[in-house]
Design a protein around this nucleic acid. Structure first.
Length: 275
DNA sequence: AAAGTGTCCAACCGCGGATAC
DNA sequence: CGTATCCGCGGTTGGACACTT
C-alpha cells in the first residue's frame, strides 16, 4: 500500500549528530522516556525525524551500551547464534548485553565474515565451503563436519537458550541455517571448551534484559542511578568517552541530577581499563 | 608528502509486523 | 475488515580515517 516516508524531508536534519543534538535527545529521554518516537524530536526541540532519534538512542546514546571491539567470547557467541538464527541481528544482540544489532551486524560484515571465509567456512550456512555442495539438507540435530568433529550436540545449553528465546518471542525457527560450526571464529579456542568462558556461561544461565530497561518508561521522578544496576554484564559503566565528555559537563544543560554526574565521573575513571 | 586503496561504522532507506482507527 | 500509522528490523551507503604505495 505504499508507505509514507517517516517524516517530510523538508526541515528535517540528516547526517551525523552533533554533541548538542545528543544532549537534547539524551536529556529528553532520561527525563521523559520515549512514549512515542514520532513525538520525541518535536518535544526535545530537535530537527530530526523520530526514526533518526530512535536510531541514535539505541545505537549510541543508550546508557547500557558497551563500546569497543567485541571480545573473543562475544564474537564466538555471535557466530554460534548466527548459525542458529541467521541474520536476525536484533535477536543476536539481545543475547549480548550492551551490544547493538547494528554493531554486531557491522562486526559480522567486516570481521567475522572474512574470518570464516578465510577458514573455509561459509558465513551463511556455517558449513565448510568445500563440503557445501555435497551436504544434503539437514535437520537441526545434524552433524557438522568441519574438521570432522564439530557437532550440534556440543552446545545443548545454547540450543536451549536460543529455543527458549525464540519460542517466547513467537519466532519461527531459522530457515535452513541449521548447522553450527562451533569452532569457526575462535581460531585458538577448542571446539569443546569455548562455553567454558565465563561470559558465555553467564549468558547461558541468565535471562538478559529484554526491553524492560527503566528509561523506557522514564519519568522525571526516576533516579538515574538505576542505570548502574540494570546491566549485570557490564560491571564497568558503558559510557563512551565521546559521550561522557559532555556528560562531565552536564550542569550546562540543566539536567541537574547529581547521581548521573557520579556515574559519568566513574566512567571517566574506568574507561582506561575497558579497552 | 601525496595519491590511491582499504576498512570501519554511523546513519539512512525501505520493508514487514503490530496496532489503532 | 480494510486502511493508516508507528515501530523495529535488516540491508545498504557514504564519509572519515588508516594504511599502503
Amino acid at each position: 500500500m505504499g508507505r509514507q516516508p517517516c517524516c517530510d524531508k523538508l526541515g528535517v536534519k540528516r547526517g551525523p549528530w552533533t554533541a548538542e543534538e545528543d544532549k537534547k535527545l539524551m536529556s529528553f529521554i532520561l527525563t521523559n522516556g520515549h512514549c512515542c518516537w514520532r513525538a520525541v524530536p518535536k518535544l526535545a526541540g530537535l530537527l530530526r525525524c523520530g526514526k533518526s532519534c530512535r536510531l541514535r538512542w539505541t545505537n549510541y546514546l543508550r546508557p547500557d551500551l558497551k563500546r569497543g571491539l567485541l571480545t573473543d567470547a562475544e564474537e564466538q557467541l555471535v557466530i554460534d547464534l548466527h548459525a542458529k538464527l541467521g541474520n536476525r541481528w536484533s535477536k543476536i544482540a539481545a543475547k549480548l548485553p550492551g551490544r547493538t544489532d547494528n554493531e554486531i551486524k557491522n562486526h559480522w560484515n567486516t570481521h567475522i565474515k572474512k574470518k570464516l571465509i578465510k577458514m573455509g567456512i561459509d558465513p551463511v550456512t556455517h558449513e565448510p565451503l568445500d563440503l557445501k555442495q555435497a551436504s544434503p539438507t539437514t535437520t537441526s540435530q545434524s552433524t557438522v563436519t568441519e574438521s570432522g568433529e564439530a557437532t550440534r550436540q556440543q552446545s545443548p545449553q545454547l540450543d536451549d537458550v536460543v529455543l527458549r528465546d525464540m519460542s517466547a518471542g513467537g519466532d519461527s525457527p531459522p530457515e535452513s541455517s541449521t548447522n553450527t560450526a562451533s569452532t569457526a571464529g575462535g581460531s585458538s579456542s577448542s571446539s569443546s571448551s569455548h562455553y567454558q568462558d565465563p561470559l558465555v556461561k553467564w549468558l547461558l544461565e541468565e535471562d538478559l534484559p529484554t526491553g524492560d530497561e527503566p528509561w523506557l518508561n522514564f519519568t522525571a521522578g526516576n533516579d538515574v542511578d538505576e542505570f548502574s544496576s540494570i546491566a549485570p554484564a557490564a560491571p564497568s559503566l558503558p559510557w563512551d568517552v565521546g559521550v561522557t565528555d559532555w556528560l562531565l559537563d552536564y550542569q550546562d544543560f540543566g539536567m541537574g541530577d547529581s547521581s548521573l554526574m557520579v556515574d559519568a565521573s566513574l566512567v571517566s575513571s574506568s574507561n582506561g581499563s575497558n579497552f
